[in-house]
C-alpha cells in the first residue's frame, strides 16, 4: 500500500458515496446513466469473486464488500425506488458494444486461461469503458448537475491515481501488470475532456454545460 493507491481507493469510495447520497437525498436519479451503473455492478461482481477464494486483508475484504453492496444499492435506487425519475430517454448508449468486445478481448488477451483470471481480465477491460454511457448521457443533454460532476471527477481520479501507484510499484518493487496499466490509461484518458470542463467550469462555480 502506498499513498497513491490509498488516495485512489479513497477517491473511488468518495465517488460512490457522492452518487448514493445525491440519489438518496434528492430522491431522484435524474442525469445518472443506469447503464453505466449496471456495467459497474458487472465489473465488481466479475472481479471480486475471489472474495470467497483468497484472504488478503481486512481492508481488502471490506472495500470489496462495500463496492459490491453499493453498486447493487445504486441499481435498486435507480430501477426500483426512484424509477419514476430515471431519465431513460437520454440513456441510450448500447452497452452490448462495450460488453461483447470486453468478453472477446478477455478470452484472447489474459495472463492465464482460467475462469477467475479471465473474469478478472474481463472486469478490467469493462471497467475502462463503463463510464461511456454516463459521458454519452451528459453530452446528449449538454449539461450535468454539479453533484454529478463531482461524482465523475472523483471516479475519474481514482484510476489516474492507480496509474501513479503502478509507476511507484514498478520503481520500488520492479513489477507491473500490462493489462491493468493499458486499461487504466484508456480509462483515465476517457475522462480527460471532462476533467478539463470540470476545472474550467465547475470549480469556478458554473454548471457544467457543453457548448451547443
Amino acid at each position: 500500500m502506498n499513498i497513491f493507491r490509498l488516495l485512489g481507493d479513497l477517491s473511488h469510495l468518495l465517488a460512490i458515496m457522492i452518487l448514493l447520497q445525491k440519489i438518496f437525498y434528492s430522491r431522484s436519479c435524474a442525469g445518472i446513466s443506469a447503464k453505466s451503473q449496471v456495467l459497474f455492478a458487472i465489473v465488481y461482481t466479475a472481479r471480486y469473486l475471489d472474495l470467497v477464494t483468497v484472504y488478503v486483508s481486512l481492508y481488502n475484504i471490506s472495500m470489496k464488500v462495500v463496492f459490491l453492496l453499493s453498486s447493487y444499492a445504486t441499481l435498486y435506487l435507480i430501477y426500483l425506488k426512484f424509477r419514476a425519475t430515471y431519465d431513460r430517454n437520454h440513456d441510450t448508449f448500447r452497452i452490448e458494444f462495450l460488453l461483447l468486445p470486453a468478453i472477446v478481448l478477455a478470452l484472447l488477451i489474459n495472463h492465464q486461461f482460467s475462469a477467475l483470471e479471465v473474469l478478472w481480465t474481463f472486469s478490467i477491460y469493462l471497467e475502462s469503458v463503463a463510464i461511456l454511457p454516463q459521458l454519452f448521457m451528459v453530452s446528449k443533454t449538454g449539461e450535468a448537475e454539479s453533484i454529478t460532476s463531482h461524482y465523475l471527477f472523483a471516479l475519474g481520479s481514482y484510476r489516474g491515481l492507480y496509474i501513479l501507484n503502478w509507476f511507484y510499484r514498478y520503481w520500488t518493487e520492479g513489477h507491473y501488470d500490462l493489462i491493468a496499466i493499458v486499461a487504466g490509461v484508456v480509462q483515465t484518458v476517457l475522462y480527460c475532456d471532462f476533467f478539463y470542463l470540470y476545472v474550467t467550469k465547475v470549480l469556478k462555480g458554473k454548471k457544467l454545460q457543453l457548448p451547443a
Partner: peptide, 10 residues
Amino acid sequence: SSLYLVKDEL
C-alpha cells in the same frame, strides 16, 4: 485475481 499484480489491489 490477476497473477502478476498482488491480489491486494481493488
